[in-house]
Amino acid sequence: MPNKRTFVPFKGTAEQEQTLNEVITAHKGKPGANMPVLQKAQEIYGYLPEEVLVKIADGLDVSLSELYGVISFYTQFTVNPKGEHQVSVCMGTACYVKGAADILAEAEKKLGIKAGSITKDGRFSIDATRCIGACGLAPVMTVDEDVYGRLTPGEVAGILEKYL
């Protein structure tokens, strides 16, 4: 299940933990603390693995299931770190009707991972995103800052190879 379980081992540092603890202390007991703390925690670690969420749950005295409900609801949160190269396939309406699902399937096949996860070596991650506002170029895939439009599935492998 992509982006539901963390696939890479946790390597948090003492500095990160200290920063997180400060954030928790600053918000503890205040109404609506969950969202800002989760956002800061993702800034600190880049993603929200179970090890981090457990610290927040105990720190804020809320349950892990409540926090997980929040992070699985909002797409801004991720339970897997992003790769060195971030591949995104737009799943907005225009891209979708122009065959974005096939583009995504091709990228997943090439990298051997599902959307929402990261390759074992940490080099690539794939996301299926909401509309990125480039409907005129549908279907669209981006790799890092580079935009590739009017794609056919046959072109995907060649594009990704440039970043290998």
């Binding site: 539901k4 379980r5 963390t6 349950s63 892990l64 299931s65 409540e66 997980y68 409900g69 699985s72």
Partner: peptide
């Protein structure tokens, strides 16, 4: 509190943290 609604929209389901 070991279960809750995970995900959203049509994918919403009752589950545990990190599935």
């Amino acid at each position: 509190s070991v279960i809750g609604p995970n995900d959203r929209g049509f994918a919403t389901h009752i589950g545990s943290p990190y599935e």
